[in-house]
Simulated assay, not measured.
Amino acid sequence: MTRDEFMAKHGHVVVKFRSYYKYTFVYEATLPDGSTLTAYYGGNSGEIEVSADSEEALYSLCPYACEVTDKDGKEVESFYDY
């Protein structure tokens, strides 16, 4: 799946900040069917402001990768564009 296809389908989803590790901010959301959308957004922590309860629409993040996994953790769809 391409970034554009993924964003057309899921760009409206509101994701919540979960963690930061090695210049990657991780955001997650639970979709209506119980699957999990995870977004990976890169950047320097000194240049990006985020709080523990930060929530944003996926399209506003411009993530370099996203994935949707089902309730069993199996990948359903994804894109990687680093």
Rank of each mutant, 00 (worst) to 15 (best):
F6Q: 07
E67V: 03
E47L: 09
P63C: 00
G11T: 13
D70Y: 11
D33S: 09
D70R: 10
G43H: 01
S60E: 07
T38K: 10
E67Q: 14
V50D: 00
F6I: 05
V15H: 02
T2L: 09
S19D: 13
G46Q: 11
H10K: 01
A8L: 14
P32Q: 10
D53N: 11
M1G: 07
V15K: 05
E28W: 02
S51G: 09
A52W: 09
S54H: 14
K22G: 02
F6M: 03
T36G: 03
K16E: 13
T24L: 02
E49S: 14
Y20T: 03
T24G: 06
H12Q: 14
F17L: 00
V14L: 02
M7W: 14
L58A: 02
V50Q: 06
E47G: 06
S60N: 09
E47R: 13
T24R: 01
Y23P: 03
K9H: 08
G42S: 13
V15L: 04
T69Y: 00
S51H: 15
V50N: 03
M1C: 05
K71N: 14
T2I: 01
S19A: 11
A29G: 08
Y23C: 01
E67A: 04
Y20P: 01
V76K: 11
E47Q: 06
S60D: 10
Y21C: 01
K71C: 06
Y41H: 10
G73S: 05
A8K: 07
Y82C: 04
Y40D: 00
L61R: 00
E77L: 02
E77T: 07
E5W: 13
F17T: 08
V13K: 05
I48H: 15
Y41K: 14
K22N: 12
D72L: 12
C62R: 11
T30R: 04
K9N: 15
V15F: 02
K9D: 05
T36D: 04
Y21M: 02
S19I: 06
M1P: 05
A65T: 03
M1K: 03
S35Q: 09
P63W: 04
G46M: 06
D53K: 13
Y20C: 02
R3V: 08
F25Y: 14
Y59N: 07
S60Y: 04
S51M: 07
E55T: 13
G34I: 10
C66L: 12
H12D: 15
G73T: 04
Y41V: 10
S78A: 12
D72P: 11
I48A: 09
I48L: 08
I48E: 10
Y64P: 09
Y41G: 08
V14Q: 10
Y80F: 09
T69N: 08
P32A: 14
V14F: 02
E56N: 02
S51D: 15
M1E: 05
S60K: 09
